[in-house]
Design a binder for these strands. Structure first.
Lengths: 162, 162
DNA sequence: TTGGGATAGATGCAAACGCATTTATCTCGA
DNA sequence: TCGAGATAAATGCGTTTGCATCTATCCCAA
Protein backbone atom coordinates (compact mmCIF):
# COMPACT_ATOMS: atom_id res chain seq x y z
CA UNK A 1 0.00 0.00 0.00
CA UNK A 2 2.79 2.45 0.82
CA UNK A 3 4.44 4.04 -2.18
CA UNK A 4 7.96 2.86 -2.89
CA UNK A 5 9.15 6.47 -2.88
CA UNK A 6 7.78 9.83 -1.76
CA UNK A 7 5.09 11.12 -4.11
CA UNK A 8 5.35 14.77 -5.13
CA UNK A 9 2.47 15.90 -2.96
CA UNK A 10 2.75 13.33 -0.20
CA UNK A 11 1.71 14.55 3.24
CA UNK A 12 4.13 14.18 6.13
CA UNK A 13 3.59 12.94 9.67
CA UNK A 14 0.20 13.50 11.23
CA UNK A 15 0.58 16.12 13.97
CA UNK A 16 -0.06 15.25 17.60
CA UNK A 17 -2.94 16.75 19.51
CA UNK A 18 -0.46 18.90 21.41
CA UNK A 19 1.16 20.23 18.25
CA UNK A 20 -2.24 21.09 16.84
CA UNK A 21 -3.29 22.91 20.00
CA UNK A 22 -0.03 24.86 20.09
CA UNK A 23 -0.48 25.93 16.48
CA UNK A 24 -4.01 27.11 17.19
CA UNK A 25 -2.97 29.05 20.25
CA UNK A 26 -0.12 30.70 18.39
CA UNK A 27 -2.36 31.59 15.46
CA UNK A 28 -5.02 32.92 17.79
CA UNK A 29 -2.61 35.05 19.84
CA UNK A 30 -1.05 36.53 16.72
CA UNK A 31 -4.49 37.42 15.45
CA UNK A 32 -5.39 39.09 18.75
CA UNK A 33 -2.13 41.04 18.87
CA UNK A 34 -2.50 42.37 15.33
CA UNK A 35 -6.22 43.02 15.68
CA UNK A 36 -5.84 44.99 18.91
CA UNK A 37 -3.42 47.34 17.19
CA UNK A 38 -5.27 47.63 13.93
CA UNK A 39 -8.60 48.35 15.61
CA UNK A 40 -7.13 51.47 17.22
CA UNK A 41 -7.00 53.07 13.80
CA UNK A 42 -9.15 56.22 13.53
CA UNK A 43 -10.50 54.83 10.25
CA UNK A 44 -12.59 52.48 12.38
CA UNK A 45 -14.12 55.30 14.37
CA UNK A 46 -16.91 55.67 11.87
CA UNK A 47 -17.23 52.00 10.90
CA UNK A 48 -16.65 49.12 13.31
CA UNK A 49 -14.43 46.21 12.37
CA UNK A 50 -17.35 43.84 12.03
CA UNK A 51 -19.21 46.29 9.80
CA UNK A 52 -16.11 46.71 7.67
CA UNK A 53 -15.68 42.97 7.43
CA UNK A 54 -19.20 42.64 6.06
CA UNK A 55 -18.70 45.44 3.53
CA UNK A 56 -15.38 43.94 2.48
CA UNK A 57 -16.85 40.48 1.98
CA UNK A 58 -19.68 41.96 -0.06
CA UNK A 59 -17.17 43.92 -2.15
CA UNK A 60 -15.81 40.61 -3.44
CA UNK A 61 -19.31 39.52 -4.56
CA UNK A 62 -20.81 42.00 -7.03
CA UNK A 63 -23.97 39.89 -7.28
CA UNK A 64 -24.51 40.08 -3.56
CA UNK A 65 -24.65 37.33 -0.99
CA UNK A 66 -27.36 35.45 0.82
CA UNK A 67 -27.54 36.31 4.49
CA UNK A 68 -26.62 32.76 5.49
CA UNK A 69 -23.65 32.71 3.13
CA UNK A 70 -22.49 36.03 4.52
CA UNK A 71 -22.79 34.54 7.97
CA UNK A 72 -20.19 31.89 7.13
CA UNK A 73 -17.54 34.58 6.72
CA UNK A 74 -18.28 36.54 9.87
CA UNK A 75 -17.86 35.63 13.51
CA UNK A 76 -21.39 36.55 14.54
CA UNK A 77 -24.60 34.78 15.53
CA UNK A 78 -27.26 34.68 12.83
CA UNK A 79 -29.50 37.09 14.71
CA UNK A 80 -26.67 39.55 15.25
CA UNK A 81 -25.80 39.58 11.57
CA UNK A 82 -29.48 40.06 10.72
CA UNK A 83 -29.58 43.19 12.85
CA UNK A 84 -26.16 44.39 11.69
CA UNK A 85 -27.35 44.26 8.08
CA UNK A 86 -30.50 46.11 9.11
CA UNK A 87 -28.31 48.91 10.48
CA UNK A 88 -26.23 49.00 7.30
CA UNK A 89 -29.43 49.27 5.26
CA UNK A 90 -30.56 52.21 7.41
CA UNK A 91 -27.19 53.87 6.74
CA UNK A 92 -27.67 53.31 3.01
CA UNK A 93 -24.54 51.15 2.68
CA UNK A 94 -26.18 47.89 1.56
CA UNK A 95 -29.46 46.84 -0.02
CA UNK A 96 -31.62 43.93 1.06
CA UNK A 97 -33.68 42.25 -1.67
CA UNK A 98 -35.72 39.07 -1.65
CA UNK A 99 -33.81 36.13 -3.12
CA UNK A 100 -35.04 35.04 -6.56
CA UNK A 101 -36.56 31.58 -6.41
CA UNK A 102 -36.59 31.39 -2.62
CA UNK A 103 -39.10 33.46 -0.75
CA UNK A 104 -37.33 32.85 2.54
CA UNK A 105 -33.96 34.13 1.37
CA UNK A 106 -32.53 37.62 1.41
CA UNK A 107 -29.76 38.87 -0.88
CA UNK A 108 -27.52 41.56 0.53
CA UNK A 109 -25.70 43.80 -1.92
CA UNK A 110 -23.36 46.75 -1.60
CA UNK A 111 -24.81 50.10 -2.67
CA UNK A 112 -22.62 52.65 -4.42
CA UNK A 113 -22.23 54.52 -1.14
CA UNK A 114 -21.30 51.26 0.54
CA UNK A 115 -18.75 50.44 -2.11
CA UNK A 116 -17.25 53.91 -1.80
CA UNK A 117 -16.98 53.74 1.97
CA UNK A 118 -15.51 50.23 1.81
CA UNK A 119 -12.80 51.42 -0.58
CA UNK A 120 -12.01 54.45 1.52
CA UNK A 121 -11.80 52.60 4.83
CA UNK A 122 -10.05 49.71 3.09
CA UNK A 123 -7.20 51.95 1.98
CA UNK A 124 -6.60 53.18 5.51
CA UNK A 125 -6.98 49.65 6.80
CA UNK A 126 -4.33 48.29 4.44
CA UNK A 127 -1.93 51.08 5.37
CA UNK A 128 -2.39 50.28 9.06
CA UNK A 129 -1.81 46.56 8.50
CA UNK A 130 1.40 47.31 6.64
CA UNK A 131 2.53 49.60 9.45
CA UNK A 132 1.90 46.94 12.12
CA UNK A 133 2.89 43.76 10.29
CA UNK A 134 5.08 45.04 7.50
CA UNK A 135 8.48 44.54 9.06
CA UNK A 136 7.71 41.42 11.08
CA UNK A 137 8.32 38.84 8.35
CA UNK A 138 10.05 38.96 4.99
CA UNK A 139 8.25 38.38 1.71
CA UNK A 140 8.92 34.65 1.54
CA UNK A 141 7.79 34.05 5.10
CA UNK A 142 4.68 36.11 4.56
CA UNK A 143 3.86 34.12 1.42
CA UNK A 144 4.34 30.92 3.40
CA UNK A 145 2.00 32.21 6.11
CA UNK A 146 -0.60 33.13 3.50
CA UNK A 147 -0.37 29.68 1.92
CA UNK A 148 -0.60 27.78 5.21
CA UNK A 149 -3.53 29.75 6.59
CA UNK A 150 -5.25 29.57 3.21
CA UNK A 151 -4.96 25.80 3.13
CA UNK A 152 -6.03 25.57 6.75
CA UNK A 153 -9.17 27.57 6.08
CA UNK A 154 -9.90 25.71 2.86
CA UNK A 155 -9.62 22.36 4.58
CA UNK A 156 -11.67 23.35 7.59
CA UNK A 157 -14.46 24.86 5.50
CA UNK A 158 -14.76 21.85 3.18
CA UNK A 159 -14.27 19.06 5.72
CA UNK A 160 -16.13 20.54 8.67
CA UNK A 161 -19.31 22.26 7.52
CA UNK A 162 -21.23 24.07 10.20
CA UNK B 1 26.62 49.22 4.42
CA UNK B 2 25.22 46.21 2.54
CA UNK B 3 26.89 42.91 3.32
CA UNK B 4 28.98 41.44 0.55
CA UNK B 5 27.14 38.14 0.90
CA UNK B 6 24.03 36.82 2.60
CA UNK B 7 24.48 36.49 6.35
CA UNK B 8 23.12 33.28 7.96
CA UNK B 9 20.05 34.99 9.44
CA UNK B 10 19.61 37.70 6.86
CA UNK B 11 16.04 38.69 6.16
CA UNK B 12 14.74 38.50 2.61
CA UNK B 13 12.85 41.01 0.53
CA UNK B 14 10.58 43.43 2.32
CA UNK B 15 6.97 42.48 1.50
CA UNK B 16 4.76 44.87 -0.44
CA UNK B 17 1.73 46.46 1.16
CA UNK B 18 -0.46 44.17 -0.91
CA UNK B 19 1.35 41.04 0.19
CA UNK B 20 1.04 42.10 3.81
CA UNK B 21 -2.68 42.79 3.49
CA UNK B 22 -3.24 39.43 1.80
CA UNK B 23 -1.42 37.63 4.57
CA UNK B 24 -3.50 39.39 7.20
CA UNK B 25 -6.74 38.61 5.43
CA UNK B 26 -5.78 34.96 5.05
CA UNK B 27 -4.74 34.70 8.69
CA UNK B 28 -7.91 36.42 9.82
CA UNK B 29 -10.21 34.25 7.71
CA UNK B 30 -8.53 31.06 8.91
CA UNK B 31 -8.97 32.20 12.49
CA UNK B 32 -12.66 32.94 11.90
CA UNK B 33 -13.25 29.59 10.20
CA UNK B 34 -11.61 27.60 12.98
CA UNK B 35 -13.14 29.71 15.75
CA UNK B 36 -16.67 29.40 14.41
CA UNK B 37 -16.36 25.63 14.49
CA UNK B 38 -14.62 25.38 17.83
CA UNK B 39 -17.06 27.68 19.57
CA UNK B 40 -19.92 25.29 18.78
CA UNK B 41 -18.42 22.82 21.23
CA UNK B 42 -20.77 22.03 24.15
CA UNK B 43 -17.79 22.58 26.47
CA UNK B 44 -18.31 26.30 25.89
CA UNK B 45 -21.92 26.19 26.97
CA UNK B 46 -20.97 26.78 30.56
CA UNK B 47 -17.98 29.04 29.95
CA UNK B 48 -17.78 31.49 27.05
CA UNK B 49 -14.69 31.64 24.87
CA UNK B 50 -13.58 34.96 26.28
CA UNK B 51 -13.97 33.68 29.83
CA UNK B 52 -11.99 30.58 28.94
CA UNK B 53 -9.29 32.68 27.34
CA UNK B 54 -8.88 34.64 30.57
CA UNK B 55 -8.75 31.49 32.70
CA UNK B 56 -6.25 29.93 30.30
CA UNK B 57 -3.99 32.98 30.33
CA UNK B 58 -4.10 33.03 34.12
CA UNK B 59 -3.29 29.32 34.23
CA UNK B 60 0.11 30.13 32.70
CA UNK B 61 0.85 32.67 35.47
CA UNK B 62 0.70 31.04 38.92
CA UNK B 63 1.53 34.37 40.56
CA UNK B 64 -1.42 36.02 38.89
CA UNK B 65 -1.54 38.97 36.52
CA UNK B 66 -2.26 42.64 36.76
CA UNK B 67 -5.54 43.58 35.14
CA UNK B 68 -3.77 45.71 32.54
CA UNK B 69 -1.33 42.91 31.69
CA UNK B 70 -4.23 40.51 31.32
CA UNK B 71 -5.86 43.03 29.02
CA UNK B 72 -2.94 42.79 26.58
CA UNK B 73 -3.77 39.15 25.90
CA UNK B 74 -7.49 39.54 25.42
CA UNK B 75 -9.46 41.28 22.69
CA UNK B 76 -11.61 43.34 25.05
CA UNK B 77 -11.91 46.96 26.14
CA UNK B 78 -10.50 47.71 29.58
CA UNK B 79 -13.94 48.28 31.06
CA UNK B 80 -15.28 45.05 29.62
CA UNK B 81 -12.42 43.06 31.09
CA UNK B 82 -12.95 44.77 34.43
CA UNK B 83 -16.53 43.57 34.50
CA UNK B 84 -15.69 40.14 33.13
CA UNK B 85 -13.25 39.61 35.99
CA UNK B 86 -15.91 40.82 38.42
CA UNK B 87 -18.23 38.09 37.11
CA UNK B 88 -15.50 35.45 37.41
CA UNK B 89 -14.91 36.54 41.02
CA UNK B 90 -18.62 36.14 41.75
CA UNK B 91 -18.44 32.64 40.29
CA UNK B 92 -15.48 31.87 42.54
CA UNK B 93 -13.15 31.15 39.61
CA UNK B 94 -10.60 33.93 40.20
CA UNK B 95 -9.49 36.13 43.09
CA UNK B 96 -8.90 39.86 42.95
CA UNK B 97 -6.28 41.24 45.38
CA UNK B 98 -4.71 44.67 45.66
CA UNK B 99 -1.30 44.80 43.97
CA UNK B 100 1.65 44.96 46.41
CA UNK B 101 3.43 48.30 46.11
CA UNK B 102 0.79 49.91 43.92
CA UNK B 103 -2.49 50.93 45.48
CA UNK B 104 -4.10 51.41 42.10
CA UNK B 105 -3.34 47.97 40.79
CA UNK B 106 -5.27 44.74 41.03
CA UNK B 107 -3.79 41.25 40.78
CA UNK B 108 -6.05 38.57 39.35
CA UNK B 109 -5.30 34.98 40.26
CA UNK B 110 -6.91 31.64 39.50
CA UNK B 111 -8.64 29.95 42.44
CA UNK B 112 -8.52 26.18 42.82
CA UNK B 113 -12.02 25.97 41.38
CA UNK B 114 -10.94 28.18 38.50
CA UNK B 115 -7.88 26.05 37.82
CA UNK B 116 -10.00 22.93 37.89
CA UNK B 117 -12.58 24.30 35.49
CA UNK B 118 -9.87 25.60 33.15
CA UNK B 119 -8.26 22.17 33.00
CA UNK B 120 -11.57 20.46 32.38
CA UNK B 121 -12.74 22.81 29.65
CA UNK B 122 -9.21 22.94 28.26
CA UNK B 123 -9.17 19.19 27.65
CA UNK B 124 -12.40 19.32 25.68
CA UNK B 125 -11.14 22.39 23.89
CA UNK B 126 -7.92 20.69 22.77
CA UNK B 127 -9.85 17.67 21.55
CA UNK B 128 -12.12 19.90 19.51
CA UNK B 129 -9.18 21.77 17.98
CA UNK B 130 -7.57 18.51 16.97
CA UNK B 131 -10.82 17.33 15.43
CA UNK B 132 -11.20 20.49 13.36
CA UNK B 133 -7.60 21.27 12.47
CA UNK B 134 -5.89 17.95 12.94
CA UNK B 135 -5.91 16.68 9.38
CA UNK B 136 -5.56 20.01 7.59
CA UNK B 137 -1.76 20.29 7.70
CA UNK B 138 1.00 17.82 8.39
CA UNK B 139 3.35 18.11 11.35
CA UNK B 140 6.03 20.10 9.52
CA UNK B 141 3.55 22.57 8.10
CA UNK B 142 1.91 22.99 11.48
CA UNK B 143 5.28 23.66 13.09
CA UNK B 144 6.01 26.22 10.39
CA UNK B 145 2.66 27.90 11.05
CA UNK B 146 3.38 27.99 14.78
CA UNK B 147 6.81 29.51 14.18
CA UNK B 148 5.58 32.16 11.76
CA UNK B 149 2.63 33.29 13.88
CA UNK B 150 4.81 33.23 16.98
CA UNK B 151 7.37 35.51 15.35
CA UNK B 152 4.61 37.74 14.01
CA UNK B 153 3.10 38.17 17.45
CA UNK B 154 6.47 38.64 19.11
CA UNK B 155 7.45 41.33 16.66
CA UNK B 156 4.14 43.15 16.82
CA UNK B 157 4.07 43.15 20.62
CA UNK B 158 7.62 44.46 21.01
CA UNK B 159 7.68 46.94 18.14
CA UNK B 160 4.15 48.30 18.39
CA UNK B 161 3.17 48.76 22.04
CA UNK B 162 -0.42 49.83 22.63
C1' DT C 1 6.94 69.16 49.82
C1' DT C 2 3.69 69.70 46.73
C1' DG C 3 0.93 70.19 42.68
C1' DG C 4 0.20 68.75 37.73
C1' DG C 5 0.07 65.13 34.74
C1' DA C 6 0.09 60.09 34.03
C1' DT C 7 -1.69 55.58 34.99
C1' DA C 8 -4.97 51.72 36.97
C1' DG C 9 -9.23 50.42 37.44
C1' DA C 10 -14.43 51.18 38.22
C1' DT C 11 -18.92 52.92 36.69
C1' DG C 12 -23.10 55.17 33.96
C1' DC C 13 -25.23 54.39 29.87
C1' DA C 14 -26.54 53.35 25.18
C1' DA C 15 -25.46 50.13 21.63
C1' DA C 16 -24.61 45.44 20.22
C1' DC C 17 -24.67 40.58 21.12
C1' DG C 18 -26.29 35.61 21.71
C1' DC C 19 -29.90 32.37 22.92
C1' DA C 20 -34.31 30.89 22.32
C1' DT C 21 -38.29 31.26 19.84
C1' DT C 22 -41.34 32.65 16.08
C1' DT C 23 -42.78 33.31 11.31
C1' DA C 24 -42.51 32.30 6.59
C1' DT C 25 -41.15 29.41 3.01
C1' DC C 26 -39.40 25.32 0.90
C1' DT C 27 -38.90 20.11 0.21
C1' DC C 28 -40.29 15.69 -0.23
C1' DG C 29 -42.38 11.23 0.81
C1' DA C 30 -46.90 9.06 1.50
C1' DT D 1 -51.83 17.08 -2.85
C1' DC D 2 -50.85 17.60 1.46
C1' DG D 3 -48.68 17.55 5.80
C1' DA D 4 -44.31 16.88 8.58
C1' DG D 5 -39.87 18.29 8.93
C1' DA D 6 -36.09 21.32 7.33
C1' DT D 7 -34.29 25.82 6.39
C1' DA D 8 -33.98 31.26 6.21
C1' DA D 9 -34.46 35.11 8.51
C1' DA D 10 -36.72 38.12 12.12
C1' DT D 11 -37.82 39.23 16.90
C1' DG D 12 -38.19 39.28 22.30
C1' DC D 13 -35.25 39.59 25.97
C1' DG D 14 -31.62 39.38 29.26
C1' DT D 15 -26.49 39.85 29.08
C1' DT D 16 -22.22 41.80 27.55
C1' DT D 17 -19.65 45.29 25.23
C1' DG D 18 -17.42 49.80 24.26
C1' DC D 19 -17.12 54.79 24.95
C1' DA D 20 -16.73 58.37 27.94
C1' DT D 21 -16.01 59.67 32.35
C1' DC D 22 -14.85 59.33 37.19
C1' DT D 23 -11.98 58.20 41.29
C1' DA D 24 -7.81 56.79 43.38
C1' DT D 25 -3.06 56.34 43.35
C1' DC D 26 1.50 57.13 41.62
C1' DC D 27 5.41 59.76 39.65
C1' DC D 28 8.26 63.56 39.33
C1' DA D 29 9.96 68.11 38.55
C1' DA D 30 9.89 72.66 40.58
Amino acid sequence: MTSPGPAPTEAGRTPSVRETAEAWESLFRAQVAVMRRISRDPAFRTLGITEYDVLFTLSTCPDGLRLNELNDHVLLAQSSLSRLVERLVRQGLVSRTSAPGDGRGVVVRLTEAGRGLQREVGRAHVREIARVMGDALDADELAELTALTGRLREHVVTHHPL
